[in-house]
Design a protein around this nucleic acid. Structure first.
Lengths: 350, 350
DNA sequence: ATGAAAGCGCTAACAG
DNA sequence: CTGTTAGCGCTTTCAT
């Protein structure tokens, strides 16, 4: 073995006194290679620690067996579940993945897209950052027929393939639940309504109000960043209202946690004075007092579905371009933060 | 432009009536190229949307300008801060990164290492998974002189380059603080002591006890997984003790949160009956009641330092092989969960 | 079932 | 300052 140098198929060919072409075929389990030769090749390759040079291979084949992933953020239960789901499927199918995250900045998202384009991924799975306004940075992928699949945070009225939950329904469920618990004035804390998920949840919220004979009161809509400060700010705005709400639907558990904490510190009793429903079923919801009612949806399933669809398309056994919208199930998880009535409809003792 | 095909330097060369070599040089800003030619090349490349084929380049140059990252888990504040720090530096220096995570499984860690080896990363930044017992899977990197830098979770008594905090000191600080708050019996909740960080914190804990004339009581050492269940289990074990501790030093905020919640639900008052100190300064610590005293350390700095050192080594302007240990500062963040005395030494009213 | 040969796109030594 | 040339390691016709 030449020291410092990698082993190539030529080394194997020379050693085994066969041609490099046969080695290449043997390594790929090509049908037209003698079983014994194949075994000899693979055993020897294993023995001397051969590893294929993916650059040479990709250069030649013009495909990378790699899927790029762009997510808006890493540190949430939901996203890591999705990643786990994606990994499960891609690993099964022999695809590599490259994970990038945009920290909720469309600027970084654009850079990531460019980077993955340069890396020549075979396909892309994307959840948009909060402030992404258009899909121009994915145009090169569309142009080159590299499939792009969006999940969760997707383009409003896009004609792209997406994996989502029914956010309208979720918003409706959350709001209806608060109404069922006797709330008369329900506020909604959310992020920029240009992002589909928030717009849709908002729509569900309004619909539930309407269906229950209430009219939407604009002053009860609070738009904040989805971070610690946003939660505190939302609470402050609620506290400052002349006519305070008695229920709040917050579109993110982390924000809900900070909002609730701030309310409680200011003498509000939850759920008695104000009932609260969050969104995402983050671990944090179980840790705070009272525990947070929330919307739960299966990240891992979404990841699996996204990866499976993308790979099927890549293998030609599915077709993304017929404008699929795949909707994953979701449900309301009732906990203490919203529970004002016992099961039989009486006011809870607590 | 041939449709469907990528543009190559040959296309540019032909169009501009110069050689491909010059185009290549111009694109790389090689000094020996005429300024005007360079401008012409870059302008034209930009115009027609040329993107270099990194496979061809890597194949030829035998280097990828890519750094691999292996972390034990993604969903913690600490890790995402480290990643942000790494990204800041690598972006500056024109390196790409590939992030992989092992979900605390050494099996996945080994697979990730193999994968990054195949991807031929120029260097590696690693935080070991909980159950990693040896560094055999990094041997191929060592053999091929690919630099590997460990941070946070590193090999016990290794001779490798590492970026860490002074865990012994942190354990000491936490324990000393509890003693200062009047705790007489201090339990320690941690994970497997084979992982350096936990062994070291444990050592600091014992040292603080000794220095204060206390002897270490083995029955107060609780080893659990660092997850929700571990926290609950730890609490149950504390509750079951005949002679209960009045202080607990827990090596992870998330676990501390679940442990504390369970204790409180069982009628324990925190910090009055039991004072609690966590570790990591996760966002969760601010949200729970009482707020969690914890050890804070700068993830972003660690990431920057790790990346900076690795890249310097790669560029030949630094040398990792002189067995560096880089220690990053850390501090105790006192909050309500451990505060039994007011600043003047009297028992707090609360 | 196997081999010979060309070429994927880029870079670097060498020559001029 | 620019061009010629060879080759990185692999895959894939085309032949045999």
């Amino acid at each position: 073995m030449k020291k410092g140098k990698d082993i190539t198929i030529y080394d194997i060919a020379r050693e085994l006194k066969i041609s490099a072409a046969t080695v290449s075929r043997g390594l790929q389990d090509h049908p037209a290679v003698n079983k014994k030769t194949k075994k000899k090749i693979n055993d020897f390759a294993e023995e001397i620690g051969y590893r294929t040079n993916h650059f040479a291979s990709s250069l030649r084949k013009q495909q990378t067996k790699t899927i790029g992933i762009i997510v808006h953020e890493l540190n949430s239960n939901f996203i890591t579940s999705v990643l786990a789901g994606i990994e499960k499927i891609t690993a099964q199918e022999g695809y590599d993945i490259i994970i990038t995250h945009s920290s909720e900045s469309s600027k970084k998202e654009i850079a990531n897209a460019k980077n993955l384009l340069y890396k020549r991924v075979d396909g892309l799975i994307v959840s948009l950052s909060a402030d992404t306004e258009n899909l121009d940075h994915f145009q090169p992928f569309f142009d080159k027929n590299i499939p792009v699949l969006f999940f969760d945070r997707v383009e409003q009225d896009g004609d792209k393939t997406v994996v989502v939950i029914d956010n309208v329904k979720c918003g409706y469920m959350a709001t209806q639940h608060l109404i069922d618990q006797g709330c008369k004035r329900i506020a909604h804390v959310t992020s920029s309504l240009t992002r589909n998920v928030y717009e849709e949840r908002f729509r569900g919220y309004k619909q539930a109000l309407t269906d229950n004979g209430k009219t939407f009161d604009k002053s009860l809509l609070i738009v904040e960043d989805l971070d610690k400060n946003g939660g505190i700010e939302a609470a402050n705005r609620i506290l400052a209202m002349k006519s305070r709400p008695d229920g709040v639907f917050i579109t993110n558990d982390f924000v809900a946690a900070f909002c609730m904490r701030t309310l409680i510190r200011n003498g509000i009793s939850v759920p008695k004075d104000i009932a609260i429903v969050g969104f995402n079923n983050d671990a944090i919801g179980e840790l705070i007092e009272p525990e947070l009612t929330t919307i739960n949806y299966p990240g891992e399933d979404m990841g699996e579905i996204a990866a499976r669809n993308l790979i099927n398309h890549l293998k030609g056994t599915g077709n993304l371009h017929q404008t699929n919208t795949i909707v994953v199930k979701s449900n309301l998880l009732v906990r203490q933060s919203s529970l004002r009535l016992s099961a039989n409809g009486k006011a809870a003792k607590k």
